[in-house]
């Protein structure tokens, strides 16, 4: 009985958490009202800072991971596929795995490790230090200045980095396959491009936008959930990282079921 009680309570807590998180995101998005300047310069400068921090500064690690994962996954795949089917489905399986799974997911995990934790700690410390309150009193909206630029920059970074990651990973995967199995590079590329349909591209973009929204929203939500103790910063950061990863895999599972 105690066990079911515990499970029930956890389910209700999780439901309320998702409602809180959705409300937080909708409230942040609602600052874009018709009377507001679209390019508010204060918000724009934060957005650029965040885009550099979470997008441009992540290019090096994403490139490295794309090359390494491209070669390692390709080598395993090539071995398995060739031993089962011969080389004929190699490119299709590689493209499907990279475009619909590995690219968005690995980029998402990197974003969680780099940006989600960074944003949660940054906002948590800013709140603890009392830096937010005087700005609110000067009429600066917290959602507008602190939350929205971070979420939007994470979404843009996730989409572009996932695209970049997938391209590099596919390129190295193909290069590896061509080198080992004497496939025609031109043929393989043509076959690969044929596999990229509008529908698959739309799914890829949608998935990455959702991933970005999850990482950005969870990070800001937990960063601003810090109330008055410095110990809460690390606590909220851990929660943000763990829950972001859980949500990423949940959304990913939904997409897998949807695309099967």
């Amino acid at each position: 009985m105690v066990f079911f009680d515990w499970v029930g309570r956890r389910c209700i807590e999780s439901l309320f958490y998702v409602i809180d998180l959705t409300y937080f995101l909708l409230r942040a998005l609602s600052v874009w009202q018709p009377q507001r300047h679209v390019a508010n310069r204060a918000v724009y400068s934060v957005f650029l800072d965040q885009l550099i921090m979470h997008g441009i500064n992540a290019i090096a690690i994403i490139s490295f991971l794309a090359v390494v994962v491209g070669i390692s996954i390709a080598s395993q795949l090539v071995y398995i596929i060739v031993s089962i089917t011969g080389a004929k489905d190699l490119i299709e399986i590689l493209a499907r795995l990279v475009l619909s799974e590995a690219g968005p997911l690995i980029t998402g995990v990197v974003m969680v490790g780099r940006s989600c934790s960074g944003i949660a700690v940054d906002l948590g410390n800013t709140k603890i230090a009392g830096e937010i309150e005087p700005l609110q009193y000067l009429g600066i909206n917290v959602d507008d200045y602190f939350v929205l630029p971070r979420i939007v920059s994470i979404v843009i970074s996730q989409v572009i980095l996932a695209l970049y990651f997938s391209a590099i990973m596919l390129m190295f995967g193909m290069f590896f396959s061509v080198m080992i199995y004497d496939l025609s590079a031109q043929e393989s590329l043509k076959e690969l491009l044929n596999l990229v349909t509008l529908d698959s591209l739309f799914r890829f973009m949608l998935k990455n936008i959702l991933f970005g929204l999850i990482v950005g929203t969870v990070a800001c939500f937990h960063g601003l959930s810090v109330t008055n103790s410095p110990t809460e910063v690390s606590e909220q950061m851990h929660k943000a990282v763990v829950l972001s990863i859980v949500f990423l895999f949940l959304v990913d599972s939904y997409f897998i079921i949807y695309t099967l």
Partner: peptide, 14 residues
Amino acid sequence: RSQIGYLSGTSPLL
């Protein structure tokens, strides 16, 4: 709020 200045000796700048 933009017409009211606020200064706090205890709350720091950004």
